[in-house]
Design a protein around this nucleic acid. Structure first.
Length: 341
DNA sequence: AAGTAACTCAACCGCGATCTG
DNA sequence: TCAGATCGCGGTTGAGTTACT
């Protein structure tokens, strides 16, 4: 649409999918699982490119998609996540089960972006971007064949017993992603005070990419938004208390202990100077009062993340009950794994 | 009723990251 | 080490729909 098709698509169908095509694609993926998008259309007998098949499956045909309007709770979630993550729609979608990045992106662009000014006084959900895969900016790249083979093996083992087997790979990946991202939400908050420069540039970058900068005056607003967001966090009663650890790393949003920019171990920089000015010569451990954040709208999703830490042992205190504790253990396990990467 | 502006959303595109041989 | 293949992501487009004049 709107652009000339790439050469490899000559002869391939474009535009809206028909019911028949949907059925073919769904049937094929049910039998063979996701992946190998390049060869999928050929094998399935579809005159579509692999990209198109993948998009159709992810955005429309997947069984675990939630249809219907975005709820108020979801909307609030999107707003808060966008305030921190910017236009990282896939990450935002990861926190909204059943919603796709495309759906959220569309919803933001059509419903929320023009209301952006209303969000400035909103609450920013802190997410340690450094702990996201690829520094929170994971891009593409095919899965290793080992992983795919293992997934295929698992699927084969379950095939015939459980219809869910058709989505094993996707669900496993999605759950893993959710798990990883949940582990990064607020459990290792951003030390805004010592990383303000990095935070500002990050927020500016996000704002500039958020679609809020379409016309003149809004550009100023965008920058103002970024600064306000940072300032608000700095001034927030729940701002992190810094504690000092042994290895000198900074739990920064952009770099993390092993990051390559911002404060932390990324080498000499202005951010490091910030860090030193604040006496952060050791690992910073946050005592971050998450309860100070207004995230009540999605309490059911965030509950497992609202823990109080024992300062010394970092053993999470369950906010809810036994089930929550199990989830917290999983998150802690993930954090431990990420810390040791 | 007709024209058109505004809106929604499915789909496409290019880019960059990652993997493999 | 590197080139090519593959994949996922965010930005963008335009057909279809709805609201307004």
């Amino acid at each position: 649409m709107g652009r000339a098709p790439c050469c490899e698509k000559v002869g391939l169908k474009q535009g809206r999918w028909t019911k028949e095509e949907d059925e073919i694609l769904a049937r094929y993926i049910k039998e063979h699982g996701e992946g190998s998008w390049r060869s999928l259309p050929k094998n399935a007998g579809l005159l579509r490119c692999g990209k198109s098949c993948r998009l159709r499956w992810i955005n429309y045909l997947r069984a675990d998609l939630k249809r219907g309007n975005i709820t108020e709770e979801e909307e609030e979630m999107i707003i808060k996540l966008h305030a921190t993550l910017g236009n990282r729609w896939s990450l935002i979608a990861g926190h909204l089960p059943g919603r796709t990045d495309n759906e959220i992106k569309n919803y933001w662009n059509s419903h929320l972006s023009r209301r952006a000014a209303d969000f400035r006084d909103g609450v920013v959900v802190n997410i340690d971007l450094s702990r996201l895969p690829g520094g929170g900016k994971r891009r593409g790249g095919r899965a290793s064949r080992g992983i795919l083979a293992a997934a295929a093996k698992e699927k084969k083992g379950k095939k015939g017993k459980d219809d869910k087997g058709k989505n094993n790979v996707a669900e496993a990946e999605q759950q893993q992603q959710l798990k990883e991202e949940d582990a990064n939400v607020s459990t290792t908050p951003r030390p805004q005070s010592d990383c303000a420069t990095a935070a500002q540039s990050e927020e500016q970058a996000q704002a500039s990419a958020s679609g809020l900068t379409s016309d003149g005056p809004e550009e100023e607003d965008t920058l103002a938004l970024s600064e306000e967001m940072v300032s608000a966090l700095l001034a927030a009663p729940g701002s992190p208390k810094l504690e000092v650890g042994p290895d000198g790393s900074c739990m920064d949003s952009d770099s993390g202990p092993s990051g390559d920019s911002g404060c932390g171990s990324g080498g000499p920089s202005g951010d490091v100077a910030h860090e030193l000015d604040l006496g952060l010569d050791d690992k910073a451990i946050m005592d971050w009062d998450l309860m100070g954040l207004d995230i009540s709208a999605a309490d059911d999703m965030w509950d497992p993340l609202l823990w109080d830490y024992d300062d010394e042992t970092l053993v999470p205190e369950p906010a809810g009950g036994g089930e929550g504790h199990q989830q917290q253990d999983e998150v802690m396990s993930d954090l431990f794994f990420l810390d040791n990467l």
